[in-house]
Design a protein around this nucleic acid. Sequence first.
DNA 1: TATTGTTATACTCTATAACTATA
DNA 2: TATAGTTATAGAGTATAACAATA
Lengths: 154, 154
Amino acid sequence: MSTPPPKTDPSPPEAAGFPGPSQISYLLARAGGQVVRHLNRELQPHGLRSRHYSVLVLAAVSVGRTQRELSITLGIDPSGIVAIVDDLEREGLVRREASVGDRRTRLVVTTDAGRRRLAEAEPAARRLDETLLVALDDPEREVLRRLLLRLVVD
Amino acid sequence: MSTPPPKTDPSPPEAAGFPGPSQISYLLARAGGQVVRHLNRELQPHGLRSRHYSVLVLAAVSVGRTQRELSITLGIDPSGIVAIVDDLEREGLVRREASVGDRRTRLVVTTDAGRRRLAEAEPAARRLDETLLVALDDPEREVLRRLLLRLVVD
DNA sequence: TATTGTTATACTCTATAACTATA
DNA sequence: TATAGTTATAGAGTATAACAATA
C-alpha cells in the first residue's frame, strides 16, 4: 500500500521556491507595488497617475462623490484627495460642485473631457490585468478577484 | 417552486456592492497599500519600517545575501537597498561582509541583535495577517497565498 | 462639539542618472 | 564592456497637525 503524500503545511515559512517571505501580507504589499509601478508607466502617455486614475474612475461611475467618500473608498488621506482633485481640476477633467444638502461638502464630478480621457486611458489599465496576470488562467483570476474584493471592502 | 438564483456574471463591471473599480490590478494596488500602512504602524514600536523588515527577514533566512539579490527579490531599486542596509547597519542589525568570489559584492548578514529584533517584531507582522484576513477562512487564505506567490515570482 | 475641506510640513518612497571598483 | 554597489537628486506618496466654514 502506498503511503499518502504528507499534508502540505497550511502556512509554511517558505513556499514553492520563492526566496522571500511568503506571508500573505508581504505578498500583497509586493504585488500592490508592482501594480502601481506598471500602472503609472502605462498611464503616463495619458497624463495620469494611478491615484488620479482611481479618482477619475470613481467620480465617473456615480454622478458625483464627495471628497470624503473618495478618501474613504480609496484609502487616501483627505489632504491627498485635495491635491489629486486640484490636479484633475486644473486639467479640466473634473469639476467641484456645491452639494445641495451640506454646504461643507463639495461634489467631485467628471467633465466630458474627463470621460474622454478616461476612455483613452482605460485600455492601458485593462492591458495591465492581462500582462500582470499572465500566470493565472481565467477561473483563477476570478477566484483571486473575489478574494481581494472581500479583503478590500473591510 | 423557487426560481434558482441567476448565475453571477464571471466579470461584472461592479461587484457585490463594492463602490470602486473591481479590476484585479486596482484591488491589488489598494490591498497592498493597506498592508504597507498597517505594517508600518505595527512595526513602529520596534523601530522598523516594512522595507527594513523585509530586508531583515530575507537576510536572516539565508546565511547572507548580496544586495543585488535583495534588490531583485524584494523589487526594490539597488539604491533603495543601499539606504535600507545603511539604516540597519547603523543600528547594528546587519553587517556588510566581503564576498569570497567577487570583490564587488557585499554580503548582508544579520547580526545577533538583528535576529533578536526580528523575533520581537515578527508577532506584529503575523498579527497583520490575522487582522487583515479576518474575512477569509483558512482554506481561502491558502488559496490566496498560492495565487499571490505565482503573481509575485514573475 | 464634530465634520468637511483645506493648507502646511516633514518624512518616506520611487525613479533616474552618474560614478567607482571590480569582473 | 558589463555588473555591484554607491551617491545624489527630483518627484510622488504618506502622515500629522492645525485651521475655517458649516453641521
